[in-house]
Design a protein around this nucleic acid. Structure first.
Length: 563
RNA sequence: GCGCCUGUAGCUCAGUAGGAUAGAGCAACGGCCUUCUAAGCCGUAGGUCCGGGGUUCGAAUCCCUGCAGGCGCGCCA
């Protein structure tokens, strides 16, 4: 039984209220000096018709506190409980060391499946910094949920369908050549795309011919398909370089084109259930009753739309994976889109429509304005990563000239610093991209956590100690206790991150842990102290190291042993 | 016009399902490397929690309203 439930039991015996009510009164004090746990008595004032301060002081005497509570202090309406330090240190540190690689993991997701739709890049378009959020957040949610026992299915819902491919083929046939595309890949495709839009302004006939070529793709024309598939292949080769750098993997690359022949079910069901109405030549589902504009399902020329495809994909995923939840890690610009088709699924009568979750995130813009593929105003993610790695390498050359595997370490740090930008703040926040910020290695950053990790590792390597018969009462100093407090909180932070689909909760927490550790490291000598003290402190170092590594891993960031 | 989101230190952000004196990082200033990695640590300074009402013993947090910014609103995705 954990501390909280034991305390609840004891309080319950002295007071005639439910465990739930007691739990609501409990909280962690803002400052460590105030104790390890607090019970707030304001709420009792009304029921007991006494002032809360008196209630607190009377109650503190009345309750028969469990043995691990070493002291109870009342302060106003607060009863502050202090726990026995060695007991607590032992419980926390041991549980990390006993579960070296899975502290904080659980089985709450056992037998459940979660589909996560993330990254979802477009074919023939650059993999730019705007894709970092979806990719990094999705990857982190994948890891967090896996850690909690869920079976995850990572889906890269490729944008490989639409008239833009007609445009691209037209542009390629008019101004492109094979060598150039082979050589510059997506960059060359992007140039063709940009040129198409420039020329199409002068010559609107280009748009017609683009539509024709897209029709050819749809109809399976061999020349059209050959070019299209070639572009797709080249784009994926390039994207995979970035995914390799990021350490991101997918279980499926089924994108829009995959669902092209799976639309009938959506249309038929909507017809059967009388949800489809004709409006201005197109077919829509009316959502006025739900205070939303109509959801377009079929264009007036009979072609399907984005929503249609998403619904077809949802059916396919439910059939194939039987998910308990399906997450869509997609920018908030598409809030309405998701709200609409989720509602349509509900109207179709599928109770699992409640399991469809749009995990929205904020916009990344450039200092000079928004990103625009059409104008070619983009920053390639690969370039950002390369620059970051290069910067890390430069710092290593100065600070750790004797380090082995400099390039490997530089990669971990450089990539970590960039990924950190996407997973360290609440998803919904907009951000403006700048190299200075993206490549920051100081303060609240991944390199800071990585540095702390490497530091901890270095101590452990030098000391080379055993962890048998540790006297945990030697970890009673404030700095050690603060580290212990952070480690203790780690598991619930992971859970919190999962329920809110917010990786930043893990990120924030490992920063707090790293800060606590660095202070401990600075204030308390580890090696060279009395043998028993050293052993106790080393076990705390080891536990910290393990938590930092797990935390970084959950965010999709690697931890170098040395840096 | 309607809908959704955001507004906390100069800047970037936390603030635990209303609770104790609102916290970090960056930038600024001042300290700390003959001892375990200074990518670090300590200190100083910096706040009308956008404004105004309300609910409550108690509000950055909940409700109403105003302001500012962002996003979205039928044949793109």
């Amino acid at each position: 039984m954990d501390y909280a439930t034991q305390i609840i039991e004891c309080v319950k015996q002295a007071l005639d209220i439910s465990a739930d009510e007691i739990e609501q009164m409990m909280e962690t004090p803002p400052e460590r000096e105030m104790g390890d746990m607090a019970i707030v008595c304001f709420k009792l004032a009304k029921v007991m018709r006494k002032n809360p301060q008196m209630i607190a002081s009377e109650l503190s005497e009345k309750v028969n506190w469990p043995s691990f509570v070493s002291k109870v202090e009342t302060k106003g309406a607060y009863m502050n409980l202090f726990f026995d330090k060695s007991n607590r240190a032992e419980q926390v540190v041991k549980s990390v060391l006993d579960h070296e690689n899975n502290y904080g993991s659980s089985e709450i997701g056992k037998g459940k499946t979660i589909c996560i739709d993330y990254s979802s890049i477009n074919i023939a378009k650059p993999f730019h910094i705007g894709h970092l959020s979806s990719t990094a957040i999705g990857n982190s949610l994948y890891r967090i949920h896996s850690y909690l026992g869920y079976k995850c299915v990572g889906i890269n819902h490729l944008g490989d369908w639409g008239t833009q491919f007609g445009k691209l083929i037209v542009a390629y046939k008019l101004w492109g050549n094979k060598e150039q595309i082979e050589k510059n890949s997506v960059q060359a495709m992007l140039e063709l795309y940009v040129r198409f839009h420039e020329e199409a302004e002068k010559d609107p006939e280009l748009d017609d011919s683009a539509r024709e070529w897209f029709k050819k793709i749809e109809d399976g024309d061999s020349e059209a398909l050959e070019i299209f598939n070639w572009f797709k292949e080249l784009t994926l080769i390039e994207a995979n370089r970035v995914y390799d750098l990021l350490g991101v993997e997918f279980d499926s690359y089924n994108g829009e084109s995959f669902y092209n022949d799976k639309m009938d079910r959506v249309i038929n069901e909507l017809k059967e259930k009388n949800l489809l109405v004709k409006s201005n030549g197109a077919f829509v589902v009316d959502l006025e009753e739900y205070n939303m504009p109509p959801c377009l399902v079929l264009k007036s020329d009979g072609a399907t739309l984005y929503s249609t495809r998403d619904m077809a994909a949802a059916f396919y995923r439910k059939d194939t994976y039987d998910f308990d939840k399906a997450l869509y890690v997609v920018a908030y610009q598409q809030n309405l889109h998701f709200k609409q088709w989720f509602k349509v699924m509900e109207l179709l009568g599928y109770e699992w429509s409640k399991d469809l979750i749009h995990v929205a995130f904020g916009m990344v813009s450039m200092e000079e304005g928004t990103l625009s593929t059409r104008k070619g105003k983009v920053v390639f993610l690969e370039d950002v990563l390369s620059k970051s790695i290069e910067k890390a390498r430069g710092i290593i050359d100065v600070k750790s000239p004797d380090l082995a595997d400099k390039d490997v370490v530089a990669k971990k740090i450089g990539v970590g610093a960039v990924v950190w930008n996407a997973v360290s703040n609440a998803r919904i926040k907009d951000s403006v991209f700048s190299f200075d910020k993206a490549l920051s290695f100081e303060g609240e950053t991944a390199p800071y956590v990585q540095y702390t990790y490497a530091r901890a590792n270095s101590v452990l390597e030098k000391a080379n100690a055993s962890f048998k018969d540790v006297d945990y009462s030697l970890l009673s100093d404030d700095e050690a206790m603060e580290v212990i407090r952070m480690i203790e909180l780690f598991p619930e932070k992971i859970l919190d991150a999962a329920t809110r689909y917010e990786p930043y909760i893990v990120a924030r927490h490992i920063i707090d842990l790293a800060q606590a550790f660095n202070k401990f490291y600075y204030e308390r000598r580890i090696i060279g102290e009395d043998d028993e003290v050293m052993k106790a402190r080393l076990s705390l170092v080891k536990a910290t190291k393990s938590c930092l590594e797990r935390g970084l891993w959950l965010l999709g960031i690697q931890a170098p042993e040395k840096m």
